[in-house]
Computed example of a mutant assay.
Amino acid sequence: MTQDAFLSAALIGLVFLLAGIVKGVTGMGLPTVAMALLGALLSPAAAAGLLVLPSLVTNLQQAFAGPDLRGLLKRFRLMFAATALTALVASGWLAKGDARLSAGILGGLLMIYAAYALFAPPLRISPEIERRASPFVGAATGLATGGAGIFVMPAAPWLQALGLGKEELTQALGLSFAVSTLALAAGLALHGAYGPGNLGASLLALAPAMLGMRIGEILRRSVSPASFRRIFLISLAVLGAEMLSRLWR
């Protein structure tokens, strides 16, 4: 391995370690942090390919650890189906579109999510609105997944506004992110941007992500999750602004 290749591998490992720590402390954020930081090193399509296994394994673990897998799958089946179908189509942009523009879109989405999470008042969605709007929220999440490799918008704010209990919310987020990950991997493969080589590289990224998650779970006992989350969101906003600014360079 050349010195440059070793340095790249070490940086990628560090990214997934940090992303795992964030997920361990806050219960979410691994794909978001990984895409944000890898955007400085790789094209969005290459970054998305790397995060497939770390994201899938950690989110399936989170989904299956919850109390009501069957109930949540039934409740959100239309939302998840819309996410998957839209991501399959939109991933063609991530695979073959303008990498600079994809990075700018990713940066803009990161800024929107950070601003919403930091400043927006808590929302509560009625069951009637949920039934009607969930497929559209899923479709919008699929567009963000396929177009920029980010799973959190608008799925996470939507799920947080439905009044789920803490364990149910954690499980629902894990399910949503797992569906997005699978759809993204399938879409990239469909458009010729994901193959065995990408899978091997993603497998290597799994170990630091799992280690980081374990470190984050330990840190959660001694740090304030709210303060950590605030620092995490501010950092996301700064990274997003830097990525968005590349459109005008």
Rank of each mutant, 00 (worst) to 15 (best):
R131A: 15
T26P: 09
T145G: 11
G49Y: 14
A189N: 06
L60H: 14
A36L: 00
A81V: 10
G97I: 01
S180L: 10
A115R: 06
G20V: 00
G197Y: 04
F80T: 09
L247F: 11
S176M: 01
R75L: 11
A133E: 01
G13F: 07
S43Y: 02
R220P: 09
A65D: 14
L184T: 15
L73S: 10
W93G: 02
P121R: 14
A183R: 00
W93T: 05
V152Y: 04
L175W: 00
I21R: 10
L199C: 08
T2V: 01
G92F: 11
W248V: 05
M153P: 02
G174Y: 11
I215W: 08
L53T: 10
G49W: 01
V25M: 09
I21W: 05
L30A: 03
I150W: 09
A84S: 10
L175C: 00
T170L: 15
A40V: 07
M243V: 03
G66L: 12
R132Y: 12
G174E: 04
G108H: 14
F80V: 00
R221Q: 15
L88Y: 06
L53K: 10
I231H: 07
F6E: 13
L106C: 07
L219M: 15
M1H: 14
V15H: 11
L69C: 03
D98A: 07
G29V: 04
G197K: 09
R70E: 06
A189M: 04
S102L: 03
E167P: 04
V25A: 01
T141P: 12
M35G: 09
G192D: 08
Y194N: 07
R214F: 06
L236Y: 13
S126V: 06
L78W: 15
A144W: 03
N59V: 01
Y113A: 08
W248I: 05
